[in-house]
Simulated assay, not measured.
Amino acid sequence: MAAILQTLTIVVLLGYPFAVYFGLQYLPANSVAMLLAALLLLRLMLQKQQVKALIAPIVLGLALTLGSAIAKQQDWLLFYPLVINGAMLVLFGGSLWRTPCMVERLARITEPDLPDSARPYLCKVTLLWCGLFVLNGAAALYTALWSSIETWTLYNGLIAYLLIGTLAGGEWLYRHFYLKSS
């Protein structure tokens, strides 16, 4: 049952921008904030010690959603993508000061026999991810402060995921062929 709830919360939180958009359009005031807060609380309880780095953004999201409901400020819900990008920037950026860097850790999950010569490349890719998180965070902040809810939803619910998927897929393909040829 926990696995089903965990999967459900992941799917809903990935769809957070759409949940906010439709919730603000069709649900009574503050109900979307309370619903999202409940999902984040459930996610936090299910998280346990699996990935400690994900606890902080969940707690910050919980604070944003509960604060939004209490203060009756629905626009606070728009800042969660900024929190996620900031958390990922800290996670990836912090890994540059200790080995292995984040992309190397992720790469070794599927390719444990990576040569040591790949480390500089993987650190550069980690730096590239940091740049993407800065760009996404800036766009998330811009759309939260100065654009319509439709633009915010489009960027944070689709374009940001397309950018992340393109970088992840493109880098994996490049690494797969780059490392195999070297």
Results as ranks from 00 to 15, higher is better:
N85Y: 02
G93M: 05
D113G: 08
M45A: 15
Y80D: 09
L35F: 11
M34E: 04
V83K: 03
L64S: 03
L36Y: 00
P100V: 06
L96K: 07
V125G: 02
I109L: 13
L132R: 07
C130R: 08
P112C: 04
L82E: 00
M88T: 03
L27G: 11
V51L: 15
G131C: 07
G94Q: 05
T9L: 02
G94C: 04
L62M: 08
M88R: 01
A53I: 07
S68L: 07
A87T: 04
L132M: 10
D75P: 05
T65A: 14
L106W: 04
F18T: 10
A118W: 01
L41M: 11
L66I: 14
P100I: 06
M102H: 04
L41R: 01
A19G: 05
L35D: 05
A107W: 01
A87P: 07
A53E: 07
L106V: 14
Y26M: 14
A87K: 03
K52I: 08
F79E: 12
L39H: 04
Y16S: 10
F22N: 11
M88L: 14
M34I: 12
V59F: 05
G61M: 09
V103D: 04
T65V: 04
S117I: 06
A71T: 11
R105A: 14
E104A: 13
L13W: 01
L114W: 00
G131N: 10
L60H: 03
D116H: 09
L40Y: 00
I58D: 07
R119K: 07
L27V: 12
L39Q: 06
I58N: 11
L36Q: 03
L60S: 03
T126F: 03
P28G: 10
G86S: 01
V12R: 00
A19K: 02
R98W: 01
T110I: 09
L96N: 05
Y26I: 12
V11P: 04
A33M: 06
C130E: 06
A19N: 02
Y121W: 09
Y80R: 10
K124D: 13
V90F: 11
P115W: 02
R119I: 05
V51E: 15
S68E: 03
A37N: 06
P57D: 02
I10T: 13
T7C: 05
S117P: 01
A29P: 10
M102R: 08
L39T: 04
A118Q: 03
L13V: 09
N85W: 01
L77C: 03
S68K: 12
R98Q: 13
I10A: 09
M34L: 15
A107H: 04
P81L: 08
S68I: 05
L46M: 12
L89W: 00
G86F: 00
A107R: 05
P112Y: 03
L91Y: 05
M102G: 08
Y16Q: 14
S31H: 10
A107I: 03
V83W: 00
F79K: 12
D113W: 02
Y121V: 08
V103C: 04
L82F: 01
Q73C: 11
F18C: 09
